[in-house]
Amino acid sequence: MEYTDKVCEYFRNPKNMGRIENPDGVSTVGNPICGDVMKIYIKVRDDRIEDIKFETFGCGAAIATSSVVTELAKGKTLQEAEKISNREVVDFLGGLPPVKKHCSLLAEDGLKAAIKNYREKKGAK
């Protein structure tokens, strides 16, 4: 299993880890049976992701991709953040081993699901 230095760096020093109390949107993606679960919390102001945090149970790649997706999304409008793809996450990390591609998909899905959750909550109000 070959990880890039960037993956190791983000695994060692992930940004935006933790929880947000009373988040505007939250998502849980993945499955503990498969060994990867990602939880993403967002705080939204004026349609912009003001704050974003993650909690992840998973391998080195899962933790690194979680960190990267939160960094890419922070400060972006919801429309911009929704366009963040797993490809972008992988490129940011300088590549991922093929068996770890699903971790980057999980990151993309997690972000999208958090935004969806925000919109649903807002719509319900």
Binding site: M1, Y3, F11, G35, C59, G60
Partner: peptide, 20 residues
């Protein structure tokens, strides 16, 4: 795997039965 990676950063070689 995340335990193994962390141990590796400390110069410790071990293994795991995790899927990863």
């Amino acid at each position: 795997e995340s335990i193994l990676m962390s141990l590796d950063f400390e110069g410790i070689c071990a293994s795991s039965g995790s899927a990863c």
